[in-house]
């Protein structure tokens, strides 16, 4: 429970890759998405289609892409270095510069390889991104120009050397604006709409979009319902428009917590953290989760309702 509860909020000041988190809800990614939109607007070429259409796919293949990207890096390194030497040729060839140059080229190649990986995934990489990556190579440490447009400091013509943090900022800004799924850590990009919770009367809670969520997770409604009831220690029913009516008062956050636990237990693959899994009833009544991206298979515990205390009016005890 403790690790499910740590909020995976996005901290832009954190430049490191965070410890991988398997599950994320859209609610928490909200600011990220907003930022992405802003950046897109600032950019001359918006990549809305890539952002929207490809998002789910990217998310699922995120892990794979990461690896692809890494492999690519070595291959790409050669031409990346060439470019960099061309760019930095006008600098004084001191040891310091050399170091910077290397870093710069590395940044660039990384960006490129991400692009390449994306291209492979079927998301058309736009010219703007690559241009930005190349243009922005050398830049001034102070009075930064528009990073995404490649102006001012980030112009190719500027001859001042970049500090590492600056480059790092650029890399992450570009990465986040263009491939928000790869930012963070590429894995916890699994998005599920937040549960819509309404109150019916005083004692019942309606979970409106359960079928939508189940579809996203590729799990049966009944399984999720059963889990919810077992965890919350209540009962309920499904109403006419496929909404779940739960007895008791529950807030969205609470249901979100329970769902998070469900995903952790029954959706994500333990081996590769991919949410692209199937739940099947295997032999001798055990449930198995089969991963579609790495092929691993593990059994999961059946949902058990534990002890239920008698609440409310007590029925006459049978003795």
């Amino acid at each position: 429970m403790t690790d499910t509860e740590e909020a995976p909020t996005f901290d832009p000041s954190l430049k490191k890759k965070k410890p991988r988190k398997s599950v994320a809800f859209e609610a928490e990614n909200g600011d990220e998405v907003n930022r992405e939109e802003n950046n897109n607007n600032a950019e001359s070429q918006s990549l809305a289609e890539a952002g929207e259409g490809g998002e789910q796919k990217e998310g699922e293949e995120g892990a794979a892409e990461m690896f692809k990207g890494k492999k690519k890096k070595k291959v790409k390194k050669a031409d990346g270095d060439d470019d960099a030497t061309g760019d930095v040729a006008e600098f004084d060839p001191t040891a310091m510069k050399k170091k910077k140059k290397k870093k710069a080229s590395k940044e660039k190649t990384e960006g490129d390889s991400f692009d390449a990986a994306l291209a492979e995934a079927g998301v058309v990489p736009r010219g703007a991104g690559e241009e930005g990556a190349e243009d922005a190579e050398p830049a001034l440490p102070e009075d930064t120009g528009d990073l995404l447009l490649g102006t001012g400091v980030w112009n190719a013509a500027s001859t001042v050397d970049l500090t590492y943090p600056l480059l790092l900022t650029r890399f992450f800004t570009l990465l986040r604006s263009q491939h928000p799924d790869l930012a963070g850590d590429g894995r916890r990009s699994y998005k599920i709409p937040p549960p819509q919770v309404l109150r019916e009367g005083n004692k019942k809670t309606i979970f409106a979009n359960i079928s939508d969520i189940c579809k996203r997770m590729k799990r049966g409604d009944e399984h999720v319902t059963q889990f919810l009831f077992a965890e919350l220690g209540t009962s309920g029913s499904v109403d006419g428009s496929k909404r779940l009516v739960i007895r008791g008062k529950f807030q969205q956050k609470q249901l979100e917590n329970v769902l998070r636990r469900y995903i952790l237990e029954y959706v994500t693959c333990r081996t590769c953290k991919s949410p692209d899994t199937d739940l099947k009833k295997g032999e001798n009544r055990l449930f198995f989760v089969t991963c579609n991206s790495c092929g691993s298979r593990r059994s999961v515990a059946a949902i058990k309702t534990g002890f239920q205390a008698t609440v409310g009016k007590r029925r006459r005890q049978q003795t």
Binding site: L232, S299, V311
Partner: peptide, 28 residues
Amino acid sequence: DVGDTQPKNYVHIRIQQRNGRKTLTTVQ
């Protein structure tokens, strides 16, 4: 391979809603 399905002796701590904002905690 059997993994989690083997009955581990978990201690379950549950919560149950009563009326109003009252709850019960059960340790099983």
